[in-house]
Amino acid sequence: MKRHLLRHSVVVLAVVLLVPALCFAGPTYDKVQAEGVVQAGLMYNSIPAAYFNESNEWVGFDVDIATEVVKRIGQQMGKDLKMEKVKVNNKTRISFLTSGRIDMSTANMTHKRERDKTIDFSITYFFDGQKILAKKGKYTSHKDFVGKKMASMQGTTSEKNAINLLKSLGDTNPNVISFQDEPSCFLALQQGKVAGWSTDSTILLGYAAKEPGKYELVGDFFSDEPYGIGLPENDSDWRDAVNFAIQDMWNDGTYMNIYNKWYGPDTLYYFPMTEKIEMWP
């Protein structure tokens, strides 16, 4: 009888100790550790963040960052992790995270409070802001776009920001046309269907470089777009792992190497680095 009691209490104790342990180590962290695979969501139509190059290879700044983050999480865990790239777009990137299809989403995602209700974000890994791209020599300030047509992408923060900007400049009925992807926006601008295209400045730089000398960015930044890696909600261990990986990358200079490869002075998309990644001593 006594032995039984002892055995029972051991089991109970084990359960009491183990269950919270299981709860605290988030499901994603454990899953990755067990399977050795990270499902990373990446855009496929965004130059130079993530796109298919001439030989149909999937490359870009986000792709390199995701690869490096996964490599470093593997080092933290002490095992070799494999990254599986999953194509996401503006419609799928958040629902893929909430449903567990992907473990992280490195996909031009601005960290917004409204979004934080549904998913979590890593620390900011890229600092962008919204600008307006237009044909060269036609416009000089934001004010010139009042009453004109503006392109943006459906389901993005830049869509809302553009409407707000035009409203604040006195446009009573802002004419912002929302397309399904970036190529459609650029085509609309290229063909003069819209006066300007507004989104994060690096995306604009990527497209403007397609026809050098024909386009220019008009006016200053009118919004801050801190990019975070989208992560599943309430998964603390996993988020720590990702955050530490980003900070380590910054500390040993790997981050700037990747940055300069895509946004450095020698590239088509030159975008000077003016900020610093958040550091925890």
């Binding site: 130059i47 796109y51 298919f52 992807d181 290229q190």
Partner: peptide, 18 residues
């Protein structure tokens, strides 16, 4: 929804060439 069938591939190729 981003399935890589003919139209999406065309968009992706188009995106690269522009």
């Amino acid at each position: 929804i981003g399935v890589f069938e003919l139209t999406t591939v065309a968009q992706t190729v188009n995106n690269r060439l522009m």
